[in-house]
Each structure stands twice: as structure tokens, then as C-alpha cells.
Design a protein around this nucleic acid. Structure first.
Length: 715
DNA sequence: TATAGCCGATTTTTT
DNA sequence: ATCGGCTATA
């Protein structure tokens, strides 16, 4: 019956030929392979996305209906990007491809099947803050806060439980390995875990891990459903497979069933998510899970010039677990990576700003410039400096504005409007009313839950309290009968009306915070329903600074600031990596564990391989680190990252000190800087080299060896 | 019972 | 800088 479908028509043969024309032999093989599972080991910049896009387009061209192709990616951005590229490459059919992150995909399936798992289809998603708050409540209710020996706080609890669930390990194993100080509390933590699961069910919320675990559970225990999806998806493609954990791997396995049309792509050198339970061995063992796996390696790098690759290869070559990979490039010309030491964090920022202005003078598009950091706050100083130079930027990674208190407040109203069982959000909004505290909240929630459809009798109980009026207004606002017909935007308007007076009383800096609420309102207009809005806020939370960093320039040229994690899969002509200090990268939290240090090395590798033509490695000398934790610890980090501090790398690096602008001299405030320097014993050469730099010369300078990694405690 | 204010402990990276 | 637990006060 389908015979005629199996053979592509001559015209589509021609199209397939055209499609593969620009590919190298391995890429072409990967695009055309059919009939057995496919593992593509793709080095950084080896055209992985291109290959995947072509493969998808080719499948569509083969006549596979797009909604039967499932493309799982790491971020939603990546999914959209690929769909877009495939559409450009082929045609609009590609828009129909099913895809997204594992979490978003899981959500969409669970939305339909939630009742089978003891949830209602109205479930909402608990983000990290929410699940921590649930844990904190349980902790308090169980009286675990009044013990002699310290009991883990909500953050630690959440981390422990997350790890247990994501790696399918026992509590004791995780405690012994990562939290030996809490080993005595194995029983208590188990109780909390059980309570946590119960709480989530009664509140009808799922956390991020639930999305994956419940989907797996559904596929495992529900043969009908599993079969349905196995038949639905003719082809499954998974990107960034090295960052999947064993649960995600199992999901893939169950989705595929006996279907051999499964393609996974990844690079074991770029596995940087072990804190989420990811295991790069997943990708190595893929052929054990899927019979007859065809393995294709892509090793030619099309992104980065050879002088930079020499360094990246050297860095990954030092890895403890040896990777069978060495990238080569046909782009042999270009400059070696530049290594720049500065005497302060602010000087680092100034150097970057100046270099950016210089690059723009020379015609580099600002969109082709990125600044990468290990953790979000490490770019704080730079952000201020960029603003003062009027250089526009977007920031990815780090703080999300959904995590700020005032946005959480508003979202809590929205959440209970959609899912009135969400007691946690009730707690939040109730505590905003004057005169209502923890005890009253518990009674109110108890009374209201007795009859959600008619809260009037419950409300009578509080008629003599001073908060009665406000409480009544809130309850009728939320539980009004027509509330499911409202759009997300309409809900925002209604909620803001109620919240605005509370908001202005609550925060004395409310004019600043107001901006966030305005952006939230703007974002809400993009979603047809409250549910879509809420889901998206949890699964693809917008970044805080995206809206706030828009200086004069009207064109949309912006540089990118990003955490290394969020920069994965992206590339820029020019890349700066900030604060390459031992203790920052590798982060000092990782120093106790060899595997974690190795992951930090891969992190550096990921950062280095984002660059196409120019790479600037920055190392400031930090006498008083600004980051909250470091400041608190009074720690001092000043030694170059151990991954780069090797004599044999000298050849790969260009040592230089080139601050060349006259009118916008970054050292205008040098008087103060020099004083602090001297008083803290910084050698005089630095000031000399500064003098040199002012005469417009690119100077190879004496490298100052700072006091090596000594911890310094104040007081 | 609610809230303000103080002290000590704890912070990476993301869906 | 923020959380969590404690105390004093309304």
C-alpha cells in the first residue's frame, strides 16, 4: 500500500543531492544513514548542527511527515534555531517538526496523561525555588530544625534529593560521597523525600525532575501509551547527548522501542552538566543500548582557526580520562590566543570595553563578540563598565528575573488562579496581607480547601479580623467562576491591580522593581492562555538583564555576555573569557573532587572552542573579590587557572599588553589604582607597562607572579 | 500571633 | 547578599 512512498521521486533525489552538496563525506554519511541507530560523535565546531539540520530536512524530503519526527535538544533556543534552519534549507514543512527540551516535551505528554499518574491536567511546575520552599516547610513541620547537630537547609536538601533522583542512587551513597557531614540524617532525609512526593501530589505540582521521572514512569508502566508514542515518532533525534542523564537515556529508549531510527549527537569532551546527573559515559555506552549502532565521527573543525585550536587541543589533551579526539582546522592563518593580566577586576572590564570599541572601529559586528564567565555574577563589574561606555549587551545565564521576590509574588497569584491546589503559592500571597502570618495561613488554607467552589462559609470565620476585607477580595478575585476564559494578559492586569498597593508598601525600592513587572506584563501578552504563560516561565525563564540593558543605539547590535554553560553550542568571531583564576575556573567548590575538576576542564574547553578568530584570556589580580561568597570567605584568588598555567603552553599563547586608545584612556583613574597597588605590594613593573601602553605600543610585559593562591582572611 | 531585627551559616553551572 | 532561627515587642 505504501510502496510508492518508499522510493523517492527523481526530483526529490535531485533535491537530496543538492542538500548534501555542501557537506563533507562524514557529514553526508550521517545525513543519509538509514536503517539502524546512529551515533554521531561531533567535535566542537564540526558542523554538528548543520548535519542535524540537513538530516532532518532530508527525512522530510523522504516523505516522513514532520510531526512524526522528534528532535530533542538542550534548550528551546536550539530547537527553534534548528527548525528555522531546516525551514530555510527546505521549506515550511519543517516547521511541523516536534521538538524542544526533554522537560518541555515531557510536560506536553504529561499534560495529556497526568490523571494516569495521580495528577490532574491542571498541574503546574515547581521551579527550584518552589521545591526548596516545599522542602523547607516539611523540614519545619517535622521539627527537624531543632536538632543538636545541624540539619541540611533547604538548598542542600534540594541538592541531595535531586542528585538521588537523577542518578538513581541511594540516599546513603549520595550522602557518603558528597555530603558526609549529613550522613547521620539518612533516615530523616528519606522521610522528607516521601513527604515531598506526597505534598507535590496534593498540591498538583511537579518539579523538574518529576517531569522526566513521571514521563519515564508513564512509558514504563503504561504499555498502551508507550506504544502510541513509539508508533507516532518514526524518527527520534537527540542533540547534546553527552549531557543527558540516565533517566533521559531511558526515556529515549522507551520512546524508540524497537524502532531503529534513532540518532544521537554529542561530544564527550563537552559534557558539563554532571551536577544535574548527566553522565558523559551515556554517549560512550549508547551502542550497548542500541543494537547495530552506526558510529560516525566528525573531527574537522570549521569554526576555529588552527592557532586557537592548538591551545584547545592541548587543554583537553591534559584531561585525565583521555579523549580520542584532536580537532584540526583548515583555517591556518590568524592570531594566537591573547593572554592578558590586569591588576584588578575593573581593569579587566576596562580592557574588554576598550577592545570591543576597537573591534567595532575595525568593522566587527557587536553580535560577533561574546564575553564568557564561569558564573553569572562574575560579569557584574563589566556590565557597569559596558553601560558607562554605552556598549549594548544581552546576558544569558545567571540570575533569572523570575527568581526575584516581586516577580515571584505576581507569579504566585497567577499560579493559584490556574491551579488553586497550589498551597505554596497560596502561602505566598496570603502572607502579603497585613496581619496574616504562618499560623493564620494554615487555618485559612485548611478552611478554603473544604470547599473550593464556595469559599463564603470559610470566609465567615474570619469576618471579625482586620484582614477580612482584603482576604475576601483576594479569594473572590482568584476563585471567580469565569477565570479560565481570561487570557494571560488579562490575568496580569487583574492581579497587578490587586498587588500594586501591596507591592509599593512591601518594597521601598519599588520604582526599580517596577521594571521587572512591566516586562512580565509585556511577556504575558505573547501567550494565549495562562497555562502556556506559566509553563513557559518555568521551562524557559527569561533573563533579567535582557530588558534592562538597552542604551541609546537603536540598531540591535549587541555583544553577548554569557555563562559558559549557556554558551554551549554557540559561536562568535571574538571571545573574551574573564577571570581565568584558579578557584574561579576550576571553581573552588570543585577542588575536592577529581571528577569535578575534570568537568571544569571540559568547561574551559567548551569556552575556548566558542571562538572563531579571536580569543582573549583574561586574568585579573583580585585582592578583594567582589562575589558575595568569596567576599564573605575573605578568600583571595590570584593564581592563573591550573589548566592554563603550564610552561609548555607558552608557545600557544601570545603574551601581550595592548591598551592603545588615547582619548578614552582606561587608566584615567590610575592615580587611585596605583596607590592601592603599591600599598598592597604589587611590583612596580606594572606601572611601567602602563606607561608603555599609553604610548600606543603593543608591549610584551613582564608577567607579575602574584602571591600564589593563598587564602587571606580578614579581621 | 505577627513582625522586626539580630546573628550565624551558606551560595556554581540549568531545565 | 540571603536564609533560618532566635528574641523582644506589639
Amino acid at each position: 500500500m505504501k510502496k510508492f512512498n518508499l522510493k523517492p521521486s527523481p526530483s526529490s533525489l535531485r533535491q537530496i543531492f543538492a542538500l548534501t552538496e555542501t557537506l563533507n563525506p562524514s557529514q553526508k554519511e550521517a545525513v543519509l544513514h538509514l536503517g539502524s541507530p546512529l551515533l554521531i560523535i561531533a567535535g566542537a565546531g564540526s558542523g554538528k548542527t548543520k548535519t542535524l539540520v540537513h538530516r532532518v530536512a532530508k527525512l522530510v524530503l523522504d516523505g516522513i511527515s514532520p510531526e512524526r519526527i522528534l528532535l530533542l535538544t538542550f534548550t528551546r533556543k536550539a530547537a527553534n534555531e534548528m527548525t528555522k534552519r531546516a525551514t530555510t534549507l527546505l521549506d515550511d514543512r519543517c516547521r511541523g517538526i516536534q521538538g524542544g527540551t526533554f522537560h518541555a516535551f515531557a510536560q506536553s505528554i504529561l499534560k495529556v496523561h497526568a490523571p494516569k499518574l495521580g495528577f490532574s491536567t491542571q498541574f503546574t511546575i515547581a521551579d527550584r525555588g518552589d521545591s526548596e520552599d516545599i522542602l523547607s516547610l516539611i523540614r519545619k513541620n517535622l521539627g527537624l530544625n531543632k536538632l543538636d547537630k545541624r540539619f541540611p537547609q533547604k538548598k542542600a536538601l534540594s541538592a541531595i534529593i535531586g542528585k538521588v533522583r537523577n542518578t538513581a542512587s541511594s540516599i546513603s551513597a549520595i550522602l557518603n560521597k558528597d555530603y558526609p557531614q549529613f550522613s547521620v540524617y539518612e533516615r530523616e532525609i528519606e522521610t522528607i523525600m516521601i513527604q515531598y512526593a506526597i505534598q507535590k501530589k496534593t498540591m498538583n505540582v511537579m518539579d523538574y525532575d518529576d517531569l522526566l521521572l513521571l514521563l519515564l514512569d508513564l512509558l514504563k508502566t503504561n504499555e498502551e501509551t508507550a506504544k502510541f508514542y513509539q508508533q507516532k515518532f518514526k524518527h527520534i533525534l537527540v542533540d547534546e547527548y553527552q549531557d543527558t542523564n540516565s533517566i533521559q537515556a531511558s526515556i529515549v529508549q522507551y520512546l524508540a522501542g524497537l524502532n531503529p531510527n534513532i540518532t544521537v549527537v554529542g561530544d564527550d569532551c563537552q559534557s558539563i552538566y554532571s551536577f544535574r546527573g548527566a553522565n558523559f559515559k551515556n554517549i560512550i555506552s549508547f551502542p550497548d543500548l542500541f543494537l547495530n549502532t552506526k558510529i560516525i565521527k566528525l573531527e574537522e573543525n570549521y569554526r576555529t582557526i588552527q592557532p586557537i585550536l592548538n591551545l584547545t587541543n592541548a587543554v583537553i589533551g591534559q584531561a585525565r580520562e583521555k579523549y580520542d579526539k584532536s580537532l584540526f582546522s583548515s583555517k591556518n592563518v590568524g592570531e594566537k590566543p591573547a593572554y592578558i593580566e590586569t591588576k584588578s577586576e575593573n581593569e579587566q572590564s576596562q580592557f574588554v570595553c576598550q577592545k570591543i570599541l576597537e573591534l567595532r572601529e575595525n568593522g566587527t559586528d557587536l553580535n560577533e563578540i561574546a564575553v564568557l564567565v564561569r558564573s553569572g555574577w562574575q560579569s557584574n563589574d563589566l556590565e557597569i563598565e559596558l553601560k558607562s561606555h554605552n556598549i549594548p549587551f544581552v546576558k544569558y545565564g545567571g540570575f533569572k528575573f523570575v527568581e526575584t521576590a516581586h516577580v515571584k509574588d505576581v507569579v504566585a497569584y497567577l499560579k493559584i488562579a490556574f491551579n488553586p491546589l497550589d498551597q505554596l503559592s497560596w502561602r505566598r500571597v496570603l502572607s502579603l496581607i497585613d496581619g496574616i502570618g504562618p499560623k493564620t495561613i494554615t487555618t485559612i488554607i485548611g478552611e478554603i480547601n473544604k470547599n473550593l467552589h464556595d469559599p463564603s462559609s470559610a470566609l465567615k470565620l474570619f469576618s471579625k479580623k482586620k484582614f477580612y476585607k482584603e482576604l475576601t477580595a483576594l479569594i473572590y478575585l482568584i476563585l471567580s467562576p469565569n477565570n479560565h476564559e481570561r487570557t494571560a494578559e488579562a490575568w496580569m492586569t487583574i492581579v497587578m491591580e490587586f498587588y500594586r498597593p501591596i507591592f509599593q508598601l512591601q518594597y521601598d525600592d519599588y520604582t526599580k522593581r517596577k521594571n521587572d513587572l512591566d516586562s512580565l506584563e509585556a511577556i504575558s501578552s505573547r501567550f494565549p492562555t495562562l497555562e502556556k504563560f506559566l509553563t513557559d516561565l518555568s521551562l524557559d525563564p527569561p533573563n533579567s538583564s535582557q530588558t534592562e540593558s538597552l542604551p541609546e543605539s537603536q540598531d540591535d547590535e549587541k555583544i553577548t555576555i554569557s555563562t559558559i554553560h549557556s554558551a554551549k553550542g554557540l559561536e562568535w568571531t571574538c571571545v573574551f573569557i574573564l577571570s581565568l583564576i584558579d578557584g574561579y575556573l576550576p571553581s573552588f567548590q570543585s577542588l575536592g573532587d577529581i571528577h569535578q575538576i575534570e568537568e571544569e576542564r571540559r568547561l574551559l574547553y567548551v569556552a575556548l572552542t566558542r571562538a572563531k578568530d579571536y580569543l582573549f584570556l583574561m586574568k585579573p589580580h583580585l585582592d578583594s573579590p567582589k562575589g558575595g561568597y568569596y567576599a564573605y570567605q575573605g578568600m583571595q584568588f590570584s593564581k592563573l587557572s591550573r589548566f592554563l598555567d603550564r610552561d609548555d603552553y607558552k608557545d600557544s599563547l601570545m603574551e601581550r599588553w595592548s591598551l592603545t586608545s588615547e582619548d578614552d584612556d582606561p587608566f584615567d583613574d590610575s592615580a587611585t589604582n596605583a596607590n592601592t597597588c603599591e600599598s598592597e605590594g604589587i611590583p612596580f613593573e606594572q606601572q611601567q607597562s602602563r606607561a608603555n601602553s599609553q604610548s600606543n605600543a603593543s608591549v610584551s610585559r613582564t608577567i607579575h607572579k602574584p602571591s600564589l593562591g593563598k587564602k587571606k582572611y580578614f579581621f
